[in-house]
Simulated scan of single mutants.
Amino acid sequence: MPQVSMTVNGKSATGEVEGRTLLSTFLRENLNLTGTHIGCDTSQCGACTVHVDGKQVKSCTMLALEAEGAEIATIEGQAAEDGTLNAIQQAFQDHHGLQCGFCTPGMVMAAASLLKENPKPSEAEVRHHLEGNLCRCTGYHNIVKAIMAASGQDVSAIAAE
């Protein structure tokens, strides 16, 4: 079986994979990084969103072998070493941007990608960026509010849902 090597959340990772092994499967099964959720395996839901070389990717659409030599960031790498939540994660908690939590890792990773590209997005820009991430519980309102709060914007005028 072929070997694949990459850097995941700042640490070197190597493993044997079949040619058909998806990046999402490699992260979950080989590296035990189960925060990357598998929702649809068809690129529809966004629960498996990670960053590959700084770009937002649905990991169910990429073979593990395609990530050879890449820098991968997952939800497990978002908090500080001591477990302190980053600004996005804290905003999701503070503004109730999650309910069941299944979509949350993908939403947080999508939000991180958006805020890297656009540090002060409008509500419309946040909603547009999240179009590839599905949530069946929240109605998105508090997720959008959380992302805007994480960007440092005043969200007091946005009504809670």
Results as ranks from 00 to 15, higher is better:
Pro2Tyr: 06
Gln3Leu: 09
Val4Ser: 00
Ser5Asp: 06
Thr7Trp: 10
Val8Trp: 02
Asn9Glu: 03
Gly10Ile: 07
Gly10Trp: 08
Ser12Pro: 11
Val17Gln: 01
Gly19Cys: 01
Arg20Ile: 04
Thr21Gln: 08
Thr21Asn: 01
Leu22Glu: 08
Leu23Met: 07
Leu23Ile: 01
Ser24Cys: 12
Ser24Asn: 11
Thr25Glu: 12
Thr25Ala: 12
Asn30Thr: 14
Leu31Gly: 02
Leu31Thr: 02
Asn32Phe: 06
Asn32Trp: 05
Gly35Leu: 04
Gly35Val: 08
His37Lys: 15
His37Phe: 01
Gly39Asp: 05
Cys40Asn: 06
Asp41Ile: 00
Thr42Trp: 00
Ser43Ala: 15
Ser43Asp: 15
Ser43Pro: 00
Ser43Met: 12
Gly46Met: 10
Gly46Thr: 06
Ala47His: 03
Cys48Gly: 04
Cys48Lys: 04
Asp53Trp: 01
Asp53Ile: 00
Lys55Tyr: 02
Gln56Leu: 15
Ser59Glu: 08
Thr61Arg: 06
Leu63Phe: 15
Ala64Arg: 08
Leu65Val: 14
Glu66Tyr: 10
Glu66Ala: 14
Glu68Asp: 14
Ala70Cys: 15
Ala70Glu: 07
Glu71Met: 07
Glu76Phe: 05
Gly77Asp: 04
Gly77Cys: 10
Gly77Arg: 10
Gly77Trp: 13
Ala79Leu: 03
Ala80Trp: 08
Asp82Ile: 01
Ala91Met: 05
Ala91Gln: 04
Phe92Asn: 06
Gln93Glu: 09
Gln93Phe: 11
His96Met: 05
His96Cys: 02
Gly97Trp: 08
Leu98Thr: 13
Leu98Met: 15
Leu98Val: 13
Gln99Met: 09
Cys100Ile: 00
Cys100Lys: 03
Cys100Met: 11
Cys100Phe: 11
Gly101Trp: 06
Phe102Lys: 03
Phe102Thr: 04
Phe102Glu: 09
Phe102Trp: 07
Thr104Arg: 05
Pro105Gln: 07
Val108Trp: 12
Met109Tyr: 08
Ala110His: 11
Ala111Arg: 11
Ala111Ser: 14
Ser113Glu: 04
Leu114Met: 03
Leu115Cys: 02
Leu115Ser: 01
Lys116Cys: 01
Lys116Thr: 14
Glu117Gln: 12
Glu117Val: 01
Asn118Val: 13
Pro119Leu: 03
Pro121Cys: 04
Ser122Met: 05
Glu123Gln: 15
Glu123Asp: 11
Glu123Asn: 09
Ala124Leu: 08
Ala124Met: 08
Glu125Met: 03
Glu125Val: 01
Arg127Trp: 07
Arg127Ala: 11
Arg127Glu: 12
Arg127His: 10
His128Thr: 09
His128Met: 06
His129Gln: 06
Glu131Gly: 09
Glu131Met: 05
Glu131Asp: 12
Gly132Gln: 03
Leu134Gly: 00
Leu134Ser: 02
Cys135Ala: 09
Cys137Gln: 03
Gly139Ser: 06
Gly139His: 06
Gly139Met: 09
His141Gln: 15
Asn142Arg: 10
Ile143Gly: 00
Ile143Ser: 02
Val144Glu: 10
Val144Thr: 15
Val144Cys: 11
Ala146Gly: 11
Ala146Arg: 05
Met148Phe: 09
Ala149Phe: 07
Ala149Trp: 10
Ser151His: 10
Gly152Val: 13
Asp154Tyr: 11
Val155His: 14
Ser156Gly: 14
Ala157Arg: 12
Ala159Phe: 10
Glu161Cys: 12
